[in-house]
Write a protein that binds this DNA or RNA. Structure first.
Lengths: 217, 217
DNA sequence: ATTTTATTGTGATTTTAATAACATTATAAA
DNA sequence: TTTATAATGTTATTAAAATCACAATAAAAT
């Protein structure tokens, strides 16, 4: 499955939950397409691909869609993550309410600096030495990387070896996930990395802003 | 110009700066392609498109590439932004060093809550009433939105009217930029919005992680 | 000076994702 | 019960982006 379609699924679901909260029960490919800025045909294709069928004239059942999308996104399992690096960005994420509202739980934070370690807060922060054990024991599969540039690859390696398979990387290095080593390069990726570089995003915005001011092209 | 190519430009540049710091002077399309995970042909096409030419056997001059990319990304103008919403995410961004390292300056923060307002810190936090005046006077064009869901569209409207043209949106609503109203829908977008939904990103990771465990397909 | 080589620059091809178009069919209306 | 309608589901088409492939050529080697 395509990366874009998975992102659309999350967006459909958020929208559907809001529609449901408003008391709606059915929705048309039309409505979802408008909201996401895509054609209704694409919405139908997505659902068709997911084996969700609608009703020839009544559209799709919102409940069924939500249920089905949650299945696909694995929302019926606990979504436990850890955050590595409890500096500015890392601790903001740990305290961010937006995650728990979507069923995502930050199980713990980790930091190499002793002064960041704390077992008293709502979410404990452990020293880095404990990370491997924690990942294995709690069977954690997804982690946020919020460490400085020079530590990122090391931290990635450690976590990757301990069993983390999904990384949300806020460090300034672009991490690429290693392939399965046993198949000498031909294997499918062992993990998934999602790099978010805030400076890149902002530079990107400035580019467009400058475009607008400059050439009328 | 394509959105993807602009992102690649930022990535090329970061890489080039590191290579330069190591003392290198020339680089081949080959090297850049490897690092970014694209083919060398695409790298050459990007540069060709930017009117940067290399040397038939000596590759590209790192200095020239950096200079040229900075030109295109508008890095010779000041990159001043504001942050609206000084909660967890917002204040983390304001204090984040990664931005200033790339020449991006947070000129001010804004918050509707009086207790967040402060003129003593390194970056002042003003009350929301002042935002329009500030944007106009300082000619700010790019803003980060880090407010709760219910405030996002209002805040977006206010800033859009005051002159902001590039938005990095961390709120949980997907903002879509409005088109120029004078051309009844046919005009080019008036602004650019970059939505980052952290919960969506993490859900996305869980999807791939679950895939790996499940079907061997 | 000549030949070889390594790299650029670009046209052709492939791949992928999205749109457009339409045949199908469940519901509603007559 | 028949007809009309409004939505789905899917096939064909278009558009876009990346890769492939190779001719052109500057530098290095002989």
């Amino acid at each position: 499955m395509n990366k874009e379609i998975v992102l659309r699924l999350s967006k459909y679901k958020r929208l559907l939950q809001k529609l449901k909260a408003l008391g709606l029960e059915k929705v048309f490919s039309n409505n979802l397409g408008d909201a996401l800025g895509v054609t209704p045909a694409l919405v139908r294709k997505d659902f068709s691909f997911l084996k969700i069928s609608g009703n020839k004239r009544g559209g799709y059942s919102i409940d069924e869609l939500i249920q089905e999308i949650d299945d696909i996104l694995g929302k019926h399992h606990p979504l436990d993550i850890i955050v590595v690096g409890c500096g500015k960005i890392g601790s903001a994420l740990m305290q961010y309410n937006g995650l728990s509202r979507d069923g995502i739980t930050v199980a713990a934070g980790f930091d190499i600096r002793p002064e960041k370690v704390s077992y008293t807060g709502e979410i404990p922060v452990f020293p880095m030495e404990n990370i491997e054990k924690f990942i294995r024991e709690k069977n954690i599969k997804v982690a946020v990387i919020a460490v400085p540039e020079n530590a990122a690859t090391d931290v990635y390696e450690i976590m990757s070896n301990a069993g983390i398979r999904g990384f949300l990387n806020f460090s300034t290095v672009d991490l690429k996930c290693s392939k399965s080593p046993d198949k000498d390069g031909a294997g499918k990726p062992e993990c998934m990395v999602n790099n978010i570089n805030l400076a890149v995003e902002i530079e990107n915005l400035f580019y467009y802003v400058n475009q607008r001011n400059g050439e009328t092209e």
